[in-house]
Amino acid sequence: MFEILEKRSLNPTVTLMKINAPRVAKKAEPGQFIILRTDSEGERIPLTIADFDRNAGTVTIIFQIVGATTEKLNHLNEGDCLQDFVGPLGRATETEGLKKVAVVGGGVGCAIAYPVAKKLHDLGVEVHSIVGFRNKDLVILEDEFRAASSKFVLMSDDGTAGEKGLVTDALKKLIESGEKYDRVITIGPLIMMKFVCRLTKEYEIPTVASMNPIMIDGTGMCGGCRLTVGGETKFACVDGPEFDGHLIDFDEAMARGAMYKPFERHAYEEACNLFKEVK
């Protein structure tokens, strides 16, 4: 069983958990993910690895409460155990040969963008981080990003944190001001990544987007996570989760992501009601 060693709320809808998983911690690299189940009847959900400590044997996950399983997960506490925790899955972020990188994160995607920024920073790469949130209450990992970046830009939809506007506005400004990036790495909502990739294509800056589609096994067995990249079908679990952002068919990915929306909404409401009754 995989014990929850630490639980921290980063904002009202985003939670950090440190999990005891020595085998996963030993192999984990930024950009990879795990799959967990909260209980013996639970669904399998993929979550990107936010941090790991090989010596302590721990893996950190950060999740947003968006559905029934993340709701259930959020009701577990330090000392509780997860039923299943498997990984590390997928390929690690490629960092070789990079000198100057813009990391563009949105919302809870920043939890995945941060370890990438940190690894690049530790390797001596110049990192500019641009992170966006809806409002100031939802900002996460600000101090951590600042420590890992030589330039940090905070954006919010309503202007209550950092500058008002979208991450693409900030990225465009930096590029226009003469910053030369040899790669942009973007992690966040599909619609945000789509527009980041559209922008960087104009400037011909190689861009990598981290995809988080619906998945079951995470080892290449089901094909549920497939997406089209450069006209070819790829499996996010084994070929990704990071792909060339200029080649991803984002519209298809968005349609596929909505496949179980009504089911998910219903399950989420049921889970919420269940916890209300318990209270």
Partner: peptide, 26 residues
């Protein structure tokens, strides 16, 4: 890659391993 297209592996895994045929399955 349209919605509603499954590999048999995915379809059967959802049903057999994840018990998606049961009304209360997650």
């Amino acid at each position: 890659n349209l919605n509603g297209v499954y590999s048999a592996n995915e379809f059967l895994t959802r049903i057999n391993l994840m018990k998606a045929y049961k009304p209360d399955s997650s």
